[in-house]
Design a protein around this nucleic acid. Structure first.
Lengths: 329, 329
DNA sequence: TTGAAAGCGCTAACAA
DNA sequence: TTGTTAGCGCTTTCAA
C-alpha cells in the first residue's frame, strides 16, 4: 500500500504538496495538482486515517450509548445521528451497554484513549457520576434521558406534557379507571410521565388508585405482558392502560388478547414512542410520537459543536399524540 | 492529557520501559514496574490508541455491513460479533447500507483508509464485484448471505433444507395449497428457499401453482401485508403461507386478521428467523430458528483470523423448526 | 533489564 | 506557490 512519500516522489513534489491536494487547499497550482492527482491514481493511493488522526489528534468517531440495540425506539434517532455524522466525516460507534456498568466503562475508556471524540448517551441507566466527571474533559451530550443539573447538554421532549395529553385523551373518551404502566422511578422520564398522568387525573378530580400504578422492570414486551397479568387480576379492573413505551403496550395487548378480552372495547391502550411495530399490531396502537430523527440530527450537531469547543444549549422538542385503533374501536 | 514521555520522566525511566509496562511484558523488574504504575496513576495517564494504532498500523475496528438496522434478524448476530470482538480488544462499527451502493462505498473506503481492519458483510444486496475485488487486499467475511464462488469465506445455514422442512411441516398437517412469500430471486437465499419449497411439494406430488408464488420487494411488514392482500384476492385461495422472513409473516398475519379471517384455522402461517417479536403476535408464529448468536461469534472469529493472515474455512450451521400457534390451532 | 533512537503516515509552521 | 522539517504518541530493534 502506497504512502504519501511515494506519491510525492512519483509526482515529483514534496509530501506537503500532496497533503495540500488531499485537503483541497487552494494554494496549489492547477498544473501541480494534476501531477499529484495523476500520481495518486497511478499508485492507487489511499490516505491513511491512522496517520492523519494521530497528527490531528482526533479519531473522527462518535460513540453512541444505548441500553439495548433491539429497542426500536432508538432506530430513527440513530439514523439521524448517523447521517448527520457521515456528512461531517464522522463515523459512529454504536455501543450497547445492557445497562451494565462494566460494559459502560469499556466504552468510556474508548474516549479516554482517544479512540472516540465524543459521546451521545441515550442510556437512562448510565452512571451519572462517571458521566458528569467525564464531561469535564470530554465532549458529551445526552439524548432523550437526561440529568437536569449535570451541566451536560441534552435534547429531549416534554415527557410530563406528553403523558398528560395521553391520559387526557383516555379521559376524553370516557375512561376514569386508567392504569399507568411505568418503568422504574429512578429514571427521570418515568417520574415525569407519572407526573403527567397524575396531573391529568387530578384535573378531572379522579382520585389515584395505587393499584393502577405499576412498574415494569424493563422495557420489553415480556415485561408488559407480565405487568398486564397483574392488572387483569385486580378485582376492580381498569378500563384503560397508559404504558410508557410501545413495547410494554404491545405486551399488554398480547396479554389482553390471550385472556379473550378485546381492545379497545374491554380495555383501551395508549403506548409511547410510535415505533414501527405500533402500527402492525391488531388493533393498531394509539401512541405518543417523538421526533426521533430530528432528535438524532440535533444531538449529533450539538456533539460536533461541543467537540469544536463551542458552548451548546439544551433543546426540548415537540411531540404528538397519534390516535389509532387501540383507543377508538 | 499526559503522554508517555511525561510518564517516563515522572517515573525516572525511558518511554520504552513505560511501553513495556503498558503491554505487560515480563522483562520489567517488579521494582521499576511499580515505579511506572505509580507514575501512571499519579498523572492520570491513559495511553492514546491513536499513537499505538499508527505504530501498529491497525485500527482494531471491525466493520459490519447490514441493510437495515431495524431488521430484528440481525440483533443477535450483532451481539455475537460484538462480544467476541470486545473480548479480543476490537470494536465494531455498525454500518447500515440501506442497500445503497453510494453508502456502501463510504464504508468500503473506511477499510481502504485503514480506519477499519476488516469487514463482515451481511447485506444480501452488496455489490459482489466490489466486495470480491476488495477481498484481495483486505480481510472480508460474509455472514448469512454469501456468494459461493467469490472466494470470500462465509458462515450461513442450509436455506434449502430449512425451507423444505417448513413446507413439509405444513403438508404434514394437511395443507396442499401452500403459498410462498419470497423475496427477490436475485438473492441466493431466496433461490435456495424456493428450491426447498418446490422440493417439498414435488415430493408429495403437489403441483406448483404459480399464482401461489409471490415476491415482496423488501423484508418489512408492509411488504408482507401487501403481498398477502394479493394472495387473499385469488379465486382459489391457499390454506397456508410460508414466508421467508418473520417480518413478512407478521405483515401477512395482520392482513389476514384485518380481513376477518383466522390463523391458523382459515390460513396457517410459517415464518423464518425466529425474531423476538414472532412470539408476541396473536397467534404466535411457527418459524425457522437460526443460531444467530453463534453465527455472529463464528463470523467474528473468522474475521479476526483472516486479519492475522490465516486461511479460514466457510461454515454451515444447523437450524431448527419451531412449531407454535400459527400452525397448530 | 533498560535506554536510545528510528519510524509508522500524516499535517502545518516556517522558510524560500 | 512549494519545500523542509518537526512532531503527533506510540512500539520495537538494537545496543549497552
Amino acid at each position: 500500500m502506497a504512502n504519501i512519500q511515494q506519491v510525492a516522489r512519483e509526482a515529483g513534489v514534496s509530501v506537503a504538496t500532496v497533503s495540500r491536494v488531499l485537503n483541497e487547499q487552494d494554494t496549489v497550482t492547477t498544473k501541480t495538482r494534476i501531477k499529484v492527482e495523476d500520481a495518486i491514481k497511478k499508485m492507487n493511493y489511499e490516505p491513511s486515517m491512522l496517520g492523519r488522526n494521530l497528527r490531528n489528534s482526533e479519531s473522527r468517531i462518535l460513540l453512541i450509548l444505548i441500553p439495548k440495540i433491539s429497542n426500536p425506539f432508538y432506530f430513527e434517532i440513530i439514523k439521524g445521528i448517523e447521517s448527520t455524522a457521515l456528512s461531517h466525516n464522522y463515523n459512529i460507534l454504536l455501543c450497547e451497554t445492557d445497562s451494565n456498568p462494566a460494559r459502560e466503562n469499556i466504552y468510556f475508556d474508548l474516549v479516554k484513549k482517544k479512540m472516540a471524540d465524543g459521546i451521545i448517551s441515550m442510556d437512562p441507566a448510565v452512571n451519572m457520576e462517571t458521566l458528569t466527571e467525564l464531561s469535564k474533559t470530554h465532549a458529551i451530550i445526552q439524548c432523550s434521558e437526561y440529568a437536569p443539573n449535570s451541566g451536560i447538554p441534552y435534547v429531549t421532549i416534554d415527557n410530563e406534557e406528553a403523558a398528560y395529553r395521553a391520559v387526557k385523551h383516555l379521559i376524553s373518551i370516557g375512561h376514569e379507571k386508567i392504569a399507568l404502566m411505568n418503568s422504574d422511578d429512578k429514571f427521570l422520564y418515568a417520574r415525569q410521565r407519572k407526573k403527567g398522568y397524575q396531573k391529568a387525573l387530578e384535573e378531572h378530580s379522579i382520585s389515584i388508585n395505587e393499584d393502577y400504578v405499576c412498574r415494569a422492570d424493563e422495557l420489553g414486551f415480556e415485561y408488559g405482558q407480565h405487568a398486564m397479568k397483574k392488572i387483569l387480576s385486580l378485582k376492580d379492573r381498569p378500563t384503560a392502560v397508559f404504558a410508557v413505551s410501545d413495547l410494554l403496550a404491545i405486551g399488554a395487548l398480547k396479554e389482553i388478547n390471550s385472556n379473550g378480552l378485546q381492545v379497545p372495547n374491554d380495555i383501551a391502550i395508549v403506548g409511547f414512542d410510535k415505533i414501527d411495530f405500533s402500527n402492525m399490531t391488531h388493533p393498531t396502537l394509539t401512541t405518543i410520537g417523538q421526533p426521533m430523527y430530528q432528535m438524532g440530527t440535533i444531538a449529533a450537531k450539538m456533539l460536533m459543536n461541543k467537540i469544536k469547543g463551542e458552548t451548546v444549549e439544551s433543546v426540548v422538542l415537540e411531540h404528538e399524540l397519534v390516535i389509532r385503533e387501540s383507543t377508538s374501536g
